[in-house]
């Protein structure tokens, strides 16, 4: 190796090391620690003995872990589907409309993106106030004569999860909008002009030309939605609490994990073994589903 190469390697090490260390200490190490912890039985805060995969088998088969876990996973699925269908289609619509330069699109671009910049905790707290029985939302419904639609949005099992999802969509829709806008703006204009000259309508233009060309950004948004939906925590924590109330109707694997691993002041003591097992399952799920969705949409990518 000559000096030049050595010097290059040194520079690479210099720039990569800090980042690598942060990833190692704060991401990889905890990941392996939770895998390690999940293989032991615990007496309160101390590991007792190596039990192999017993914590996992309890999580998947024993009452009440199985019930809580499946219930939470089902809510994560609802999060994923609602976010995919509502947030990302609205995002795509917004992105498309803005790319068509509708009047005031520059202003919309900024307005849609502002909530993305807000702290998730502040958004949860404020919307928690708005969704109270005497909050902004019910007051507005009363004002426009829709008293019959007033509800305890975060207190009723049938509305609570959807209410929180809606808040999250409100907060986050600007992000897919901008990603899709950027992707649509990248579609070559000559291609679109040629289609227009051939008399292709707006609908067909979108589905046959624009959509296939923006599949890479759809992949990114889908993967981010998968990760986001599996990691939902702060929204629940701020709006309905760590117990995923009422009666576990807003529980997600994130809150279930936290509650199990660390305990909650008002309800129970920590169970580190099972909690770590949930953590590992979250990691594996995120990893696998992301991989599948990348594969799935890769197959549909089109190159010009």
């Amino acid at each position: 190796m000559d000096v030049k190469q050595l010097r290059k390697a040194a520079w690479i090490i210099f720039f990569v090391t800090p980042g690598l260390m942060i990833v190692g200490v704060f991401i990889l190490l905890p990941l392996f620690m939770s895998l390690y912890n999940s293989l032991f039985s615990w007496n309160q805060l101390l590991p007792v003995e190596f039990v192999g995969l017993e914590n996992f088998s309890r999580l998947f088969t024993k009452y009440p872990y199985q019930q809580r876990f499946l219930n939470a996973l089902q809510n994560n699925l609802i999060w994923f589907l609602s976010t995919m269908v509502l947030q990302n289609s609205v995002g795509l619509l917004f992105g498309y409309l803005m790319s068509r330069s509708i009047p005031g699109y520059q202003a919309f671009k900024r307005i849609f993106f502002i909530p993305v910049l807000f702290s998730i905790i502040a958004v949860g707290f404020l919307w928690g106030l708005y969704l109270k029985p005497s909050g902004l939302v019910n007051n507005f419904l009363g004002l426009v004569g829709l008293e019959s639609l007033q509800h305890a949005w975060l207190g009723e099992e049938r509305f609570a999860t959807m209410a929180i999802i809606m808040v999250n969509i409100w907060r986050w829709v600007g992000f897919p909008s901008l990603v899709f806008l950027a992707a649509i703006d990248n579609v070559p204009t000559e291609c679109l002009e040629a289609a227009h000259l051939d008399g292709v309508g707006e609908w067909k233009l979108f589905w046959k030309i624009v959509f296939p060309l923006i599949i890479p950004s759809i992949t990114i948004i889908t993967v981010l939605t998968v990760i986001g939906s599996l990691n939902v925590f702060e929204q629940i924590y701020t709006m309905t609490g760590l117990d995923g109330g009422p009666n576990y109707s807003t529980d997600t694997i994130g809150t279930l994990f936290y509650r199990t691993a660390f305990g909650s002041v008002d309800a129970g003591s920590p169970e580190i073994g099972i909690g770590s097992a949930i953590g590992v399952v979250i990691y594996i799920l995120t990893f696998l589903i992301s991989l599948i969705s990348i594969r799935f949409s890769r197959n549909r990518e089109v190159q010009l």
Binding site: P64, R68, G155, E156, E157, D243, G245, P246, N247, Y248, T260, S264, D266, A267, G268, S269, E271, I274
Partner: peptide, 24 residues
């Protein structure tokens, strides 16, 4: 009953919410 998981407290709190809401 707050020594082991699921604690009596966590079970009661969720079940009582179900009763008050009329779902249990």
């Amino acid at each position: 009953f707050r020594y082991q998981q699921p604690t009596g407290s966590s079970l009661w709190q969720a079940a009582a919410q179900g009763v008050m809401a009329g779902t249990l």
